[in-house]
Nucleic acid binder design. Structure first.
Lengths: 242, 242
DNA sequence: CGCTGCATTGATGAGTGTCAAAATTGGTGG
DNA sequence: CCACCAATTTTGACACTCATCAATGCAGCG
């Protein structure tokens, strides 16, 4: 028996816009179950036409795109609250794969119900589109990072972004956050080699800005990191929860 | 007096899904006018909260993101039929600027009417979201290009993508298409230096794959280009027109 | 007819990638 | 509890792609 939406732990976090009781009830109908998966498990495959969509309830993962020569590009990191499968739901085919990096708990929706959002619940349809626009915006920033920022700027940028997202979700304690990724993941996200990523992380540690070891990222000087990364530190807007 | 939607030249191109007469009528109400602008004119500014949204009727432009150090990243190229201002309409703020590269004719919509799509015309709301997902998909591919492809692969990839989009719009004649961009635009799109972009284009010409001069791109061997670019040549899906 | 913007070419060097190996960590089974 | 193995992190040496600098050519234009 699936857990009740009204007890969903995410809905109480202030990173998210509160749902009205009616909305919660509608989402409950849309929800078909929950899924708990182990680290390394693929959630959706690039090119697949998945019948199910998900919201990450807990745990973290990555979105990645595979190229013909075997290399891969990490598109984004998946945090709790992220909606997974928008492309499958709309385009009928995922442009990237999604894979768990920790144990994850997923809220499972039926894709066939997707259209009901638009037909009967325009506010929720709007929320989905809003999330899509937010992701588009973020990907644009990533493109600017890959195209214009140097290795140290890019790594600093990534650390700032991860830290900010984590902070909004209450995952930060004493300026530290658990980071279940490997340096290879970060390297693949930034289009850098593993070796160079490692050396660049070393520089940030040397300069006492951020140190990441034992799966824990510690941020010592967020402002200076943001300056290196050429980015602003404005707070993330509240996001809807699907 | 704005031109009638039912005479819109785009609606007849087979790159787009046909609109029913009712839909055309609704779009007509949404439309507030047309705008003709000169090359170089900014259409929307990064960070702005624009009251108006657009669909490109003719002409071409670029989406670009400006960084604090003055550098810029071209996010994508704008073709006829592209919807401009989704982020402003949803997030209240553009994540990038849009600028004309040729003379452009724009269909102008009122942002305040945006919500009506979702409330009263779920099919059209769905279409908007569909376009957003398509863009998100493309940006993911761009990220893979910037992160994983070498200079020659990236340039080949860009030429293939542009050629395919142009072909779908009937802009290709004898394997040539008018390209109003400068090599600087392409360099900024790929995160390469202008000089290296120039030399890489030279290689493609040498190898008799593609030659671009005098604002005209000629593709001599699309298949070989696609192979270099590590990309498929599958036809673009029909897209909705907003 | 001298601007100004864009394309082109050559020379040089910095930033990253690649290769190889060692150090560290974590997990597994004896 | 230790031994072993796989995955990951770390370090050093070297190679190469690509950025930077600088100069020339070329076309459009007031």
């Amino acid at each position: 028996m699936a857990t009740q939406c009204k007890y969903c732990p995410l809905n109480r976090k202030d990173a998210f816009i509160d749902l009205s009781p009616e909305e919660v009830e509608f989402m409950q109908k849309f929800k078909v179950g929950e899924l708990v998966i182990d680290p390394g498990t693929p959630i959706l495959m690039q090119g697949s036409n998945a019948p199910q969509l998900f919201t990450a309830l807990s745990g973290m993962g990555i979105r990645e795109r595979h190229l013909k020569d075997g290399s891969k590009q990490v598109i984004n990191f998946v945090f709790p609250g992220d909606f997974i499968g928008l492309q499958a739901g709309l385009l009928g085919e995922m442009g990237h794969s999604v894979e768990a990096r920790t144990q994850m708990r997923l809220c499972v929706f039926n894709r066939s119900e997707f259209w009901n959002f638009f037909k009967g619940h325009p506010e929720r349809a709007f929320d989905i589109t809003w999330l899509g626009a937010m992701e588009e915006n973020f990907l644009g920033e990533s493109i600017a990072t890959l195209g214009q920022r140097s290795a140290i700027q890019a790594v600093a940028w990534t650390m700032v972004k991860i830290f900010q997202r984590g902070a909004a979700l209450g995952m930060v304690q004493n300026n530290t956050i658990a980071l279940p990724y490997t340096q290879r993941d970060v390297a693949d996200a930034l289009g850098l080699s593993l070796v160079h990523t490692n050396k660049t992380l070393g520089k940030l540690k040397e300069r006492q800005l951020a140190s990441w070891s034992d799966r824990v990222l510690q941020i010592n000087d967020l402002e200076k990191l943001a300056m290196i990364a050429m980015t602003d530190l404005r707070p993330l807007p509240k996001r809807p929860l699907i």
